[in-house]
Amino acid sequence: MGLVAIATGKFLSSFSVFLFLTVLLMVVARRISTSVLLFSLQSAIITAEVFAMGVREKLAAAYVVGALVLLIKVIAIPYAFFRLVDRLKSPRDVKASTTPTQSVFIAGAMIYLSYAAVHSFGQTVHVPEDALAAAVALILTGSFLMVSRKKALMQMLGLLVLENGIFLAALITTFGMPLVIEIGIFFDILVGLLLMGIFTFRIRDTFDHLDVSKLRRLRG
């Protein structure tokens, strides 16, 4: 048992490092489909962390949550996104307002900031520092993606990344929320995605494009 505990603990901290990589790749991705694939990969890493937490803390509920994350964030949401991109028939470009190099530097600064922010917290409370920093970094870069990308679809994706960060932070600090609340949150995400999907169709139909920076006048 001792060995398993050590292995899962190591796993939790070292695999969150891969989350940084997905974040960095996501801010340089030039196509929507690449970003969606990266989001799926990111969720898969988080699924693995949920299962590792379940093994370490012997929580049966964690397996249910892990299965839900796998089903919804790794498979269902990316699939829905691909369908959406297909049906919208809009150009594949994400329309970034920063160059890739600038984006990497901004994302890097955010990662550094999140490390600095959790450093004092991690010493008082016994949590894996890398994982908590990854959670904060996901929240920050999620909001950065929402602000800096002009495509309406990328704003949905940014929100989902942000949500991944909040989920990971809850998992690391409190070993996950109660199962009922977790299921409620997943339901929220699905409904939110549905609404935003409808909205993008409406935006496209009224304005003939998905560029939110050009939405300046009311149109009925």
Partner: peptide, 15 residues
């Protein structure tokens, strides 16, 4: 751009 991203990532690694 491609190499700029590589440079940014490696600068981050040093930081």
């Amino acid at each position: 751009d491609f190499l700029g991203v590589a440079a940014a990532v490696s600068a981050l690694a040093v930081i």
